[in-house]
Design a protein around this nucleic acid. Structure first.
Lengths: 229, 229
DNA sequence: CGATGACCAATTTTGCTCAACTGGTCATAT
DNA sequence: ATATGACCAGTTGAGCAAAATTGGTCATCG
């Protein structure tokens, strides 16, 4: 796991992502990834230990991107510090990243045997209860709501948002942005404090947590964090 | 499809339900159903045309039961006429019926090839937009919300409520009744009119719709409706 | 009569082989 | 130092035939 991958690694991960999403992990061969990235199969193993590790690093890199995108969406959103804004942007960032969506939903068609080899990859959780707790502490979220349960409901909504297509024909599903706004609206009514909530304080909490996370990963990887898109 | 099945038919459907839920449609044989119901395979075909028709009639019967259960839960619930009460009881009735849950979620492990033979079985919809519209008309639900989108969000929540176990380990899922109450609470805050909403009027709408539905099915089947549990 | 279970055609499963492919390695080349 | 692709052992999967099972029927029974 790295905070910064070099060009060759990035093009390998790009190629892998495209193929994994299109054909799934199992139907994609290391050779195809190598070819698509314009190098030989042997060279792949100079950068990654195994096929598994390609997927692992891909998910790690894309999670970084996802978090960064989310972070910037929130910063740019006036309601970004409230639960509704946080969550709305979770859904927006999620819809922009099929691989993160697949990982969150444990989509077997895409993740295939990778799921079996790395079983406890994430817990199907997008927003952590302790994060909600900190938002409550600064009046960005109602205090009379159980953070764990709230987090769970959000996981439910995100999961359904991504997977409802499995049970409902697409012509009966409202447009993505309409659904996102309606969900955000519902959250606003249900979770924002009566006085309107302190969005700026919420953003500050997020900044703190982001800084902590960056420090943690810099210590872990021994690399300096740097924005990447 | 019948509104009232005789004893033998009911015990066949009971046996089928137990086996379908335990082993799935494909892994359950007509012979097993017959044996479990205490009759021979040949006799099954005196009551039902085919295996498909067993599942079809089972779903029809269980849908009736589900609707009746839902209806009575709502009648007994002070908030039953509001969106929150309606929906809370949808989730309660749903958790009481694995086969209805499987049908709603298009669970291939249980429905198996039945899904392919009867493709457009339901639309993954539990509450219809026009029902919400009628609730709005009598002030049981806020009027500034799009009924179609609201219905869709409810489908999402019900789907996630039933399927979240696929992506989240059970020890990280709050207790069922806690989740149900939290969802109902959220709906209350988001969808109940400011003045508290007219729950009794909501119930009256439901009664009307129930009467219409009963009349429709009595005309369709030529049978008289009768409560069955 | 309603009910049975032997029976049937059709499908599915099983056990098997063999060729192709796969992830990963490494001697070799650049 | 970096990259290649032939190579290897292990796995997958297409193909096939035999065997078993299936949903559904019907002559027969009580």
């Amino acid at each position: 796991m790295k905070l910064k991958y070099n060009d060759k690694e990035n093009s390998l991960l790009d190629a892998a992502m495209e193929l994994f999403i299109r054909y799934g992990y199992d139907k994609t061969t290391v050779n195809e990834i190598a070819k698509k990235a314009g190098i030989s199969k042997g060279a792949v193993y100079l950068h990654f230990d195994s096929k598994q590790s390609i997927m692992g690093n891909l998910l790690f890199r894309e999670t970084q991107k996802y978090n960064l995108r989310w972070f910037e969406l929130i910063d740019a959103d006036p309601k970004g510090g409230l639960m509704s804004g946080m969550y709305k942007n979770v859904l927006i960032a999620l819809s922009a990243s099929p691989i993160i969506t697949a990982s969150f939903c444990k989509d077997t068609a895409i993740l295939g045997s990778y799921l079996k080899s790395v079983p406890q990859q994430g817990y199907g959780e997008l927003i952590r209860p302790d994060f909600i707790k900190r938002l409550q502490d600064v009046d960005a979220v109602r205090k009379d709501i159980n953070p764990s349960v709230m987090a769970h409901i959000m996981d439910m909504l995100a999961f359904a948002f991504s997977s409802i297509g499995d049970i409902k024909p697409s012509e009966r599903i409202p447009k993505t942005d309409v659904v996102i706004n309606a969900v955000a609206d519902m959250m606003d009514r249900a979770f924002t404090p009566q006085d309107g909530g302190n969005s700026e304080a919420g953003k500050r909490v997020l900044h703190q947590i982001a800084d902590e996370a960056i420090a943690y990963y810099e210590r872990l990887t021994g690399q300096k964090f740097e924005k990447q898109y």
